[in-house]
Design a protein around this nucleic acid. Structure first.
Length: 425
DNA sequence: TGAAATGTTGGGGCG
DNA sequence: ACGCCCCAACATTTC
């Protein structure tokens, strides 16, 4: 009997999963698979919490499938070789995927599509991860938006509420119970850092409370959107008409996704090349203090320690630490971006890159270079009671806490001069 | 979703 | 009562 494959990637859910739903409604013998990609795993520590999360999520999906007589086939290896084996082993009719828009994924999927085509197998790709794809929200002249507000207006104009798919039935799944491999077998170990559940019922007060990190009122949705443990349509369906600020953040996500696709050189280059002349100091010791949360600025240090301990950082604080690295320490935004990429549970290339370039002032629709956060002023405004900073810096106020590594006024003036001198005319 | 520097205004203390 | 000065509070400009 012919087999069709549904390939899980960053859509780790059975509900409202476009490609999975299409597969089981169109095909008879659908085998769901997941591939642990060696070329990605090799770059990560063996206790990477994101790999842990993927593993745990797949285990849950597998239990659900097993209870209904099927299972998810877990594989590991180099993607091309794994697919060659699959083609050998199964009489594959079709392969269903949801599109993944990151540069690595696009290249990977292009190669697999070619391999499948050579073997007479169709690869069917669906839009699932976003409401609007990169070329669906364009300016009247056919060019992409590079400013958020008009992009958002167009996005909203084009938006139509989309129906959530009905719960899946299990009749058309491949009826075979593959063993679920252990972590050890796959070559990684348990992480202490775990992904929190998301909370969407705060969306109505999000606009007022989101700036105060001690309130802990944000949704923790981001890692779930990253790995697809909830889908974007499900999220938007839960929002009320008044939750515009929250919706706006979801639109930022798609804004930066389309920026990355239309301007792929932002991965390594300033979006605005006029800032290419900035002379970054890139002092390795300064960078280490920033990474470890030992700058002597409580809000910066609390944020970095929250990141190091939980894989997460409150959004307001992300802006402050990013601004501090680029403007106060004059360290290249790419260094900060790489550190966040390593640590963040919700790491996503497009958002991480877009927001770092925003903070550095080099991005599209970015903060102007002379807009410099005063970390003590931000502390006074957004954590006056110091509840947040004390949570992450137990030694705050004692002699063990480091003195400020740099004077704010000095750093501010130095940043203004360095940026001004670096701007190419 | 910036903050500092500079400018303007007006209430109140005081002679 | 009046004018002068001080300065907090607010507004505008600047980076």
């Amino acid at each position: 009997m012919k087999t069709s494959i549904f390939w899980f990637r960053r859509d780790l859910r059975l509900e409202d999963n476009t490609a999975l739903h299409a597969a089981i409604t169109q095909k008879k013998n659908v085998l769901p698979i997941f591939i642990f990609d060696e070329s990605i795993l090799d770059e990560l520590p063996d206790n990477d919490p994101r790999v842990n999360f993927i593993y745990k999520t797949l285990k849950g999906i597998n239990q659900n499938l097993q209870a209904n007589g099927s299972s998810v086939l877990i594989l590991k290896g180099k993607i091309g070789e794994v697919w060659k084996d699959l083609i050998d082993k199964y009489a594959i009719e079709s392969v269903f995927i949801n599109k993944d828009y990151e540069p690595y994924a696009i290249e990977r999927d292009y190669k697999i599509a070619k391999l499948l085509a050579e073997n007479g197998i169709e690869l069917i790709a669906f839009k699932d991860q976003v409401i609007h794809e990169e070329s669906e929200v364009m300016k009247a002249d056919g060019t992409p938006y590079t400013v958020f507000t008009p992009y958002k207006n167009k996005w909203l104009e084009l938006y139509n509420p989309q129906k959530i798919k009905p719960p899946i039935t299990f009749t058309n799944f491949h009826k075979e119970q593959y063993p679920f491999p252990s972590m050890e077998f796959l070559g990684f170990i348990e992480s202490k850092i775990t992904v929190r559940d998301f909370v969407l019922n705060n969306a109505d007060t999000y606009a007022e409370t989101r700036n105060y990190p001690f309130m802990d009122s944000t949704s923790y949705l981001s890692p779930h959107l990253r790995f697809g443990t909830i889908g974007i349509r499900q999220v938007i369906a839960k929002l009320k008409a008044s939750d515009q600020t929250f919706l706006s953040e979801l639109i930022w996500r798609e804004f930066f996704m389309q920026i990355l696709l239309h301007f792929p050189n932002v991965v390594t280059q300033n979006f605005r090349s006029k800032y290419d002349g900035i002379q970054w100091l890139n002092d390795a010791n300064d960078f280490e203090k920033w990474c470890n949360g030992e700058t002597g600025y409580p809000l910066v240090d609390a944020g970095m320690r929250q990141l190091n301990n939980t894989g997460y950082m409150h959004n307001r604080v992300r802006m402050v630490v990013a601004g501090f690295l680029c403007k106060h320490l004059l360290i290249d935004w790419r260094w900060g971006e790489a550190y966040f990429a390593k640590k963040l549970l919700d790491y996503e290339l497009s958002s991480n890159n877009g927001n770092w370039q925003w903070a550095a002032g080099t991005g599209c629709d970015a903060a102007p270079y002379f807009r410099i956060f005063n970390p003590m002023e931000q502390l006074r405004k957004f954590d006056k009671s110091e509840a947040y900073v004390k949570k992450w810096i137990p030694e705050l106020g004692s002699s063990k806490y480091p003195v400020q590594m740099i004077d704010h006024k000095f750093a501010r003036n130095r940043a203004l001069e360095t940026y001004k001198a670096g701007i190419l005319s």
